[in-house]
């Protein structure tokens, strides 16, 4: 129930992000100066921090979604609780692996 609610909430957040993302990347059409200026802004520490958050939301939605697919296609309602935690462990591992380099860039940016 909680995982379902979180799936919806994270999904709505990701749709909002996707819309923004499409608009931001469209700055490519206005040439290198403008695109690089926008990207520099988005490379600032505050946005890097949000990027780590984004990674977390993506990984939750992705791995809970994979669990839903497994349950839907191969059954497994009996082990769905265990499956949830297995998926979350994988997601957490990927989160650490992905967040570390971003945090590294963030610290680099702060040092300069």
């Amino acid at each position: 129930m909680v995982s379902w609610a979180l799936h919806r909430l994270s999904g709505l957040a990701l749709v909002a992000y996707l819309c923004l993302h499409i608009f931001v990347i469209h700055n490519l059409a206005y040439g290198p100066e403008r695109f690089d200026r926008v990207m520099e802004l988005l490379g600032s520490p505050a946005f890097k921090l949000m990027e780590i958050g984004l990674l977390g939301v993506i990984l939750y939605h992705a791995f809970n979604g994979l669990r839903v697919i497994i349950i839907d296609f191969w059954g497994g309602t009996k082990i769905q609780k265990q499956l949830f935690w297995i998926m979350m462990v994988i997601a957490a591992a990927l989160f650490v692996a992905g967040a570390a380099p971003i945090a590294g860039h963030l610290l680099n940016a702060l040092a300069h």
Partner: peptide, 30 residues
């Protein structure tokens, strides 16, 4: 919804990894 979801999981990990993890993590015009 399930088929596209499965596809997106594969593609988004590549997308995120290539853009933010490999190299400097900077996405420039070039």
């Amino acid at each position: 919804q399930r088929l596209t979801g499965l596809f997106i999981v594969l593609i988004i990990l590549l997308h995120f990894g290539i853009n933010h993890l490999i190299g400097t993590g900077e996405v420039t015009y070039d």
